[in-house]
Design a protein around this nucleic acid. Structure first.
Lengths: 345, 345
DNA sequence: CTGAAAGCGCTTACAG
DNA sequence: CTGAAAGCGCTTACAG
């Protein structure tokens, strides 16, 4: 019996038919059932059968057809990474790539492929919902910063396991999530600024419909109190918004001597505004960011910032998702941040 | 006959069994074959049958099971986006996210999911090769800048359609690719610098085992000639390397009055070095980058640069891959760049 | 511990 | 234009 006997499947070179479980069984001298058992952990197979099958797999170059497996197990053995941002902003954000890389690597260890999907536009969202609903993935890693994202609503209603990156505002009870301890991180850095003798500490927040926007502001207020509303300006996490917010702050409170910015990217913008205004950093104004993005090191001067443990966040996201898929209830993981002192403050 | 009669598949709520082609057929009053035909374009089905099926699909909420389809068609209906970089560098690179976003969106239009895989470490590469070899994707979009990447070798040997982003050095004949016209782009910007009266134009190249490293240097030489080797320094596309290269250039050629840097990220580093050296940009030294990355706008001063048409690159990558999957021969697409003038030069 | 057999949800010649 | 039927490559009770 040669491979030629079988028709070559479309798209494959003739004579190169991929071996199936049947071929392995024939070579090993066992039944297909037995082969399948060793493929699935080897419970209830004798050492000798196990051995024969493994050798046969080796010899035939067999590789499992996941479609066939998925068809019967009703599991996709893959997960989706969904970026539910209305803007293209997130792709500019260094946190995004870090997270994506971390999750890809982490899932790779479990031999689970990551399907990337973006749901920026209305149209994309429809496609994504349809896709996710059609059983192609066992679960989804959801990145969506803004509160009230319709995708989060739709997903949390279905029975597809979801774990969110960052607190899913308004859905904390129903969807699992992992987040850095934004509030505590903000507290740390603002406390640090005060300890270094800064008296007029301003802040540039993220959007107030995002957890990072809200919580980092709360942390700031925990230390500074809520007096001096002139010391608070808002950005949208873009570099440009940081620059503009800093300009406003300097106008409203020319005597400020420090600023805590809710992201490194915005802090970069703030540095530009300060430079334009002729303020020296850190001599005149100390600047601290949040994230410890790669750009923090390259900034001039290098940024003092709050490090989010992105590797651990990725790992926990994947761990939680696997747990959800296995049937566990939603849970939350809050990870500690770390103050990283460089030259800017 | 209620849904309850069937056992609920694992992981699904009881009573929520997903409708299959059989249910649709029953509701429409046709055979499963007919349903399948309308699902696959509707050739050879009467208008009335077509109608009945479509209504039945609507009514039952039917959604196709791709695993079942793939099992018989031997096609995965998905493609992989493989990042074959030894370093984590590429995730820092703004081009990467832009490309990834573009391809995701473009594939989305064809309703084809993108599987993201990284092959940075030896271990990951093994996993990726195994994965790609197991028929889970119909083709791969390969991003690998360095020549002699073992993954490119392995993939171009197999019969899986591959299209590379950027010239696959040493494999131009065997693998399809799309790239920006690096050489022409470099020529344009260097010519521009000369026209603006700059006489001592230096360059900072990318690694010389990458197409961007080689070709942008060639473009520079096309205009400047190959004299003055003291005006050429090499970087590795990181910001830090750009800073260091600029430092070296200033030491070797203190009289330089312009520098063409092979990437915006490195140009950022060059700006830092120039600032430290007390040179004004563009008054003392004009600086031009390459890419027109998002950071180019935020730089101080904003960067004059060469724009790579990333949207078109993504679209062409996907188009070429689809063509390859459909059986067409490998081909190459070279896309024109565009000079973007800002304040730095 | 093992094999024979049913079945996962589709597609596609084949006959009509 | 349509239906009956085989088959894609696996897993998993069921009997032994």
């Amino acid at each position: 019996m040669t491979a030629q006997q079988f028709g070559a499947p479309a798209g494959t070179r003739p004579g190169r038919r991929r071996p199936t479980i049947k071929d392995v069984a024939a070579v090993a001298g066992v039944s297909r059932g037995t082969v399948s058992r060793v493929l699935n952990g080897g419970t209830n197979v004798s050492p000798s059968a196990m051995d024969a099958v493994n050798r046969a797999i080796e010899r035939t170059g067999y590789v499992l057809n996941r479609n066939a497996r998925s068809l019967v197990t009703q599991r996709a053995w893959s997960v989706a990474f969904v970026l539910a941002e209305p803007q293209e902003r997130f792709f500019e954000d260094p946190n995004f790539s870090t997270l994506l890389r971390g999750c890809t690597a982490e899932l790779g260890k479990h031999d689970i492929p990551l399907l990337l999907a973006t749901a920026g536009t209305q149209e994309e969202r429809g496609r994504v919902v349809r896709f996710l609903g059609s059983g192609h993935v066992d679960g989804v890693l959801l990145v969506s910063t803004h509160a009230g994202n319709p995708l989060l609503e739709e997903l949390s209603r279905g029975d597809l396991p979801v774990v969110a990156c960052g607190r899913p505002m308004g859905h904390e009870r129903r969807v699992a999530y992992v987040a850095a301890d934004d509030r505590e991180g903000a507290r740390d850095v603002v406390r640090y600024l005060r300890e270094r003798g800064r008296r007029r500490v301003a802040t540039i927040t993220g959007p107030l419909d995002t957890p990072g926007g809200v919580q980092r502001l709360e942390g700031y207020r925990d230390v500074v109190g809520s007096d001096g509303p002139d010391l608070v300006a808002h950005g949208d996490y873009t570099q440009r918004s940081g620059e503009e917010a800093m300009r406003q702050l300097l106008e409203r409170a020319p005597d400020l001597d420090a600023v805590f910015v809710a992201s490194d990217l915005m802090a970069l913008g703030a540095l530009t505004a300060l430079r334009r205004a002729g303020r020296r950093v850190p001599e005149d104004v100390a600047v601290a960011g949040f994230d410890d993005a790669p750009i923090a090191v390259g900034a001039e001067p290098p940024l003092t910032t709050v490090r989010q443990p992105m590797e651990r966040i990725s790992a926990e996201l994947v761990r939680l998702l696997m747990a959800r898929i296995a049937g566990e209830e939603p849970s939350a993981v809050i990870l500690p941040t770390e103050l990283v002192v460089r030259r800017s403050a």
